[in-house]
């Protein structure tokens, strides 16, 4: 039922939103326009005019400089992080919600406190641990800390969802002779689909965007990720602004496609991270 009070125009919020539209729109539009022209045409037109020449040549240039490798490495880290965090967090959240033992309660409190640990701040000891484990300069060195530092929020989201599964259902299944693993896979996982996708979005985006872990733990340029590749390009493409803009644009394409084809899912996932 549409309410009259929420349907009336809201000038103040509408005005601020219009300003924000320009603030967001102009940089994104400039990025696209600049990325699709040549260096010379960009220089002739200047930053505020529409260039005269249009080309897709920057795509080839960016790919020639190894962008596909960066994509591949980023995809490996993203998928690896999502899988590892689900394998660790789903059973843990289930135990935290179902188990009566003090271990489960204490673990939950530990994860709650863990929410406050800033990953950047412990980068020096992580560097020590990663090098001692012999993982320096591997993608695993990025996956492990990414999963660890998203784990508290992931467990919070999942255990919130599992608490809402009615207790009677667990008891009914136990009476029917289902083991805890079966309850977990055949009832808990399907019933908390919404939260599991929120978790995938959150961990996936964190991994996709990770910067400081690959910055510190990866040296070999062929093993680096898209974010670090952009930093490399920022230095290499010193005056070739269209080339750099195309690299920035390409770095966002996979997430952008996800937004176009699965917008509801992506937005619901992001909103789910903020909790109720």
């Amino acid at each position: 039922m549409p309410s009259t009070s929420t349907a009336r125009p809201n000038w103040l919020a509408g005005g601020l939103s219009a300003v924000w539209l320009v603030v967001v729109g102009v940089p994104i539009l400039s990025m696209i326009v600049w990325g699709l022209t040549t260096e010379q045409a960009f220089r002739d037109a200047g930053p505020l005019a529409v260039p005269q020449v249009w080309t897709l040549g920057n795509v080839t240039e960016v790919i020639d400089r190894g962008f596909l490798d960066y994509y591949w490495n980023t995809a490996v880290v993203t998928v690896g992080s999502i899988l590892l965090s689900l394998v660790l967090a789903v059973p843990a959240a289930y135990a935290i919600v179902r188990s009566k033992s003090w271990v489960a309660g204490a673990s939950f409190r530990m994860f709650l406190l863990g929410l406050a640990i800033p990953a950047q701040a412990v980068i020096v000891p992580l560097y020590l641990i990663i090098t001692e484990m012999g993982l320096y300069d591997t993608l695993i060195a990025v996956i492990l800390p990414t999963v660890a530092f998203t784990l508290p929020l992931v467990i919070l989201i999942l255990s919130g969802a599992l608490r809402d599964v009615p207790r009677d259902m667990y008891e009914a299944m136990t009476l029917d002779g289902a083991g805890s693993l079966r309850i977990l896979l055949s009832a808990v996982v399907p019933m908390s689909r919404g939260s599991i996708s929120a978790v995938c979005v959150f961990v996936g985006l964190t991994a996709w965007n990770s910067f400081i872990f690959p910055l510190i733990f990866i040296r070999d340029e062929s093993k680096t990720m898209v974010t670090l590749g952009l930093r490399e390009f920022q230095q290499e493409f010193a005056v070739d602004i269209p080339g750099l803009m195309m690299a920035v644009l390409l770095s966002a394409v996979p997430v952008f496609l996800l937004y176009v084809f699965a917008r509801r899912w992506l937005i619901a996932g992001l909103a789910g991270v903020g909790g109720k």
Binding site: V87, A95, I96, P125, I129
Partner: peptide, 22 residues
């Protein structure tokens, strides 16, 4: 239930220990 242990051990190694080590 041992379901919570892998997550706890993992978090301890890569988050709690670094926090102490720092």
């Amino acid at each position: 239930m041992g379901y919570v242990l892998p997550a706890v051990v993992f978090f301890t190694v890569f988050a709690v220990v670094p926090l102490v080590l720092v």
